[in-house]
Design a protein around this nucleic acid. Structure first.
Length: 293
DNA sequence: AACACCGCCTGAGCGC
DNA sequence: TGCGCTCAGGCGGTGT
């Protein structure tokens, strides 16, 4: 489930452990999770051995580790991926790559479901080219840019938000949360989101993502940051995983359907499909989830 | 061109 | 107790 807030939380938590550190050794335990830029089997050089880590950069859900000599790695966490530092010598079952730093700290990439992976890059220009295929980062989106990204599309707006070429960083959880916050029905046509509605949606996306970053991301099951800490943003979810429960703004039972092959939850009353008709009082309460069981 | 849909993969949770 | 089924989901590839 790592979406933008989780990847950003990983980035921030890793910064103090990685910046300025030299990669003393690198090991790939599963070669098939790593794609090299030159198509040759991954080597220690591909994996930044002897490099000094200069920067951690994020675009959407992708995290890049940039070395001072220009080499870079892109890490994709996919569904169940984790990237974390550890001083423990034991490795998790699905550890696929590890790096030992000159601080004797280990950086571990683990991914049970293997929807994630690592991509090697020779130069920052290659990173820029890779990321050019992605839409604008969702933390930077504004109304006019979002309107441009959605223009002409007849898809449901939910499907468009999940498309990383349209907007980078939003996944299933925060798409539902942002649409609820903006009071837009997930099935509304993407191309119909214009003007003030685009402003509303862009603002909702930024706010939902920033709130989640401040809460350290959403830990539903697997997610931990780069030091093993869970997040608490799941306690703030208004609609995700709440199908059938009362809307926190109006009490109407939340509905669920599959849109773009993703479970989608929304409030049929607050999130009107009709244009220009905004029900008045909509103020979602802050919610603390009661622990299950 | 735009969009729909499949398949990859594992572990949790459930019913029997 | 344990087996088998379903579900979760990002994204690349293929089909329409």
């Amino acid at each position: 489930m790592p979406e933008l807030p989780e990847v950003e939380s990983v980035r921030r938590s890793l910064l103090p452990h990685l910046l300025g550190r030299r990669v003393a050794s690198a090991r790939l335990l599963r070669a098939d999770i790593c794609d090299t830029h030159d198509g040759t089997p991954p080597t220690h050089a591909h994996l930044l051995r002897d490099a000094s880590i200069a920067e951690l950069r994020r675009h959407g859900k992708q995290l890049a580790i940039l070395a001072a000599d220009g080499r870079a790695l892109v890490v994709h966490l996919g569904m169940s991926g984790r990237l974390f530092v550890s001083r423990d010598s034991t490795l998790p079952t699905h550890a696929h790559a590890l790096w030992t730093l000159d601080s004797d700290t280990r950086l571990v990439f683990e991914d049970p479901r293997r929807f994630g992976g690592i991509w090697t890059l020779p130069h920052p220009d290659a990173l820029a080219r890779r990321w050019a295929d992605l839409g604008p980062d969702a933390l930077d989106i504004n109304g006019p840019a979002l309107e441009r990204a959605l223009a002409g599309s007849r898809r449901p707006v939910k499907a468009a938000l999940l498309d990383q070429r349209t907007l980078a960083g939003v996944g299933n959880i925060y798409a539902d949360e942002a649409l609820f916050a903006a009071r837009i029905a997930p099935k509304a046509r993407a191309g119909s989101i214009r003007g003030m509605r685009a402003d509303d949606l862009a603002l909702a996306i930024r706010r939902v993502l920033l709130d989640a970053i401040y809460a350290g991301g959403s830990t539903l099951r697997d997610y931990r940051d780069g030091t093993g800490q869970p997040g608490s943003a799941q306690n703030r979810h208004q609609v995700y995983a709440r199908a059938g429960l009362p809307c926190l703004a109006c009490g109407t039972p939340l509905r669920q359907a599959s849109i773009a092959q993703r479970t989608t939850v929304w409030c049929p009353r607050c999130q009107s499909t009709r244009l220009g008709q905004k029900p008045k009082a909509h103020r979602a309460r802050q919610r603390t989830r009661v622990p299950a069981g």
